[in-house]
């Protein structure tokens, strides 16, 4: 009888902690998502050279080089293509909600939609939209409504693994699984799934650098799981966080740059 009482006492004593523990677990993925949004937010301007190596079974290897300027504060973006020769001088300019494509040969700007390809790659105009992860996705929950999160090792790094499902219907992937580094919330691996649940892409982010106290991705590897054998590697170099002249984000500047 005494031991039973002790048991109940123990349960009653531990119950608040259990509730606290589950409450902490319940909010954890959401908190990680918020942290990731903070990590992704670019307070200062940024410019960098981007090399995109696209390997496709049917087309072989293609290398695209471009220079990009970005100002998140004013939601402006400019990309000018450096290679291959067929794309050289072409560019993309985004100011607020407007996204234009510039063709050097015809010297014309054309409004493009979010589904259009950038420089003939698999990157879409919509990928440049500044939208928070927390506004687009929500954590997958168990039967009791608790957010599902696992702690595991990805190589030698301790990570959180969790699944997000889209809460809006205009995101490319309705479901994503994230592996996020535990100590700094950097995403190391992301698996993206189609609406019917097929694994479409696995992205790896093995290299980051710290500039002025902020983490900036140096390399991203995107493996196409739908068409096996296709792979895209994105590499950033010459990164600068210096304030950019507002003139950069104008059609005139892109035209001059392309000459």
């Amino acid at each position: 009888m005494k031991s039973k009482k002790k048991k109940y006492l123990l349960i009653l004593t531990l119950l608040p902690f259990a509730v606290l523990f589950s409450a902490e677990k319940k909010t954890k993925v959401t908190e990680i998502m918020k942290q990731m949004d903070i990590m992704m937010r670019q307070d200062s301007d940024i410019s960098a050279k981007v090399v995109l190596t696209q390997k496709k079974i049917s087309q072989g290897v293609k290398v695209y080089e471009s220079f990009y300027f970005r100002s998140d504060k004013t939601d402006e973006y400019l990309i000018v293509s450096l290679a291959p020769e067929t794309e050289k001088g072409n560019g993309y300019l985004r100011v607020g909600d407007n996204f234009w494509m510039y063709r050097r040969n015809t010297r014309t700007f054309q409004h493009i939609s979010r589904d259009e390809s950038i420089m003939g790659t698999d990157t879409r105009a919509g990928d440049f939209e500044k939208r928070k992860l927390i506004d687009l996705y929500e954590p997958m929950k168990d039967k009791n409504g608790n957010e599902i999160i696992e702690e595991e090792m990805l190589g030698k790094k301790a990570v959180y693994k969790f699944t997000l499902t889209a809460k809006v219907n205009d995101v490319t992937y309705p479901k994503q699984i994230y592996w996020v580094q535990r100590d700094n919330y950097l995403q190391l691996k992301v698996q993206s799934f189609s609406l019917s649940g097929t694994l479409m892409q696995t992205a790896y982010f093995p290299k980051y650098t710290q500039i002025q106290g902020r983490y900036v991705m140096l390399q991203g590897i995107f493996v196409d799981e739908f068409e096996k054998g296709n792979k895209t590697i994105v590499e950033l170099s010459g990164i600068s966080l210096k304030k950019l002249d507002p003139k950069i984000f104008t059609k005139a500047y892109l035209e001059n740059l392309s000459k």
């Binding site: 919509g126 205009d170 490319t172 189609s194 019917s196 739908f226």
Partner: peptide
Amino acid sequence: LKVRVTTIYGQVQTA
């Protein structure tokens, strides 16, 4: 055949 399409809202769909 495997197909990849986008839904009217822009989500990737396969079948």
